[in-house]
Write a protein that binds this DNA or RNA. Structure first.
Length: 221
DNA sequence: GACCAGGCACATC
DNA sequence: GATGTGCATGGT
């Protein structure tokens, strides 16, 4: 799959961030949000010259929220960025080099303990900001793998991650490119199952109208 | 106007 | 443990 995607689409050049800190902020802002909306927010932060740990720490949370408005959930996300900064200041003196000097497994545990940082955000930070060979799983990854019958439709994050990491040697550049390619393919070729307009609850076709769902999936590359 | 987007936390049963 | 819900903007 990796070779097929790379041959078809070429290298994706992820993560689209200039600094490690920018990658971390972007990882929070892109939670359940399209990157285009995040990019606008990042640009506003850059123009405001607050895209450093020290400057963002000094920025009031409501001001931060307004700057990242375009990325959606801005009050929630401003709080999450602030919680991360509180963690970074309290344990590492706002120093990212000190943060990433830690052993990666304990660092992952620490990141997951920060409210607002879940598995995907933690792993994105580790891989794309820290260069740690850990595979990032997202909605596209699961959708593509389940459509190919490689995982169950309700497979967990950890199960999906273990499938990749059990089959591939730990290689950060490869994990980086692989995940980026899955996202690129997913955006274009692996769309969500449409809602069932005939169903009064408008639930997932897969659950309520399995026959129609199978027909859709059969047409979905 | 509905749907979707590179999640996560929390309430409820 | 499973399921539902709030958070919110901007593009298609």
């Amino acid at each position: 799959m990796y070779r097929a995607m790379l041959d078809a689409l070429g290298p994706q050049g992820w993560w689209p961030g200039r600094t490690r800190f920018e990658v971390i902020v972007g990882a929070v802002l892109t939670q359940n949000t399209s990157w285009a909306n995040v990019a606008k927010a990042i640009e506003r932060l850059r123009r405001a010259r607050v895209l450093t740990p020290k400057a963002l720490t000094a920025l009031p949370q409501d001001r931060l929220a307004q700057l990242i408005r375009s990325s959606g959930y801005y009050n929630v996300k401003a709080g999450r960025v602030k919680r991360f900064l509180g963690f970074l200041r309290g344990r590492y003196g706002l120093n990212l080099s000190r943060l990433f000097a830690r052993q990666s497994s304990s660092l992952r545990t620490e990141l997951l303990a920060v409210p607002g940082i879940g598995p995907e955000t933690a792993d994105s930070i580790l891989l794309y900001a820290g260069g740690v060979p850990i595979f990032v799983v997202d909605a596209y990854t699961r959708r593509i793998l389940s459509r190919h019958g490689l995982i169950a439709a309700d497979a967990t994050y950890d199960t999906t991650q273990a499938l990749f990491m059990g089959a591939l040697p730990p290689n950060a550049p490869r994990y980086n490119e692989y995940h980026a390619l899955l996202v690129a393919v997913g955006k274009t070729y692996c769309r969500p199952v449409p809602r069932c307009s005939a169903c009064p609850l408008r639930r997932d076709l897969e659950r309520h109208c399995p026959t129609t769902a199978r027909r859709f999936l059969a047409l979905s590359p």
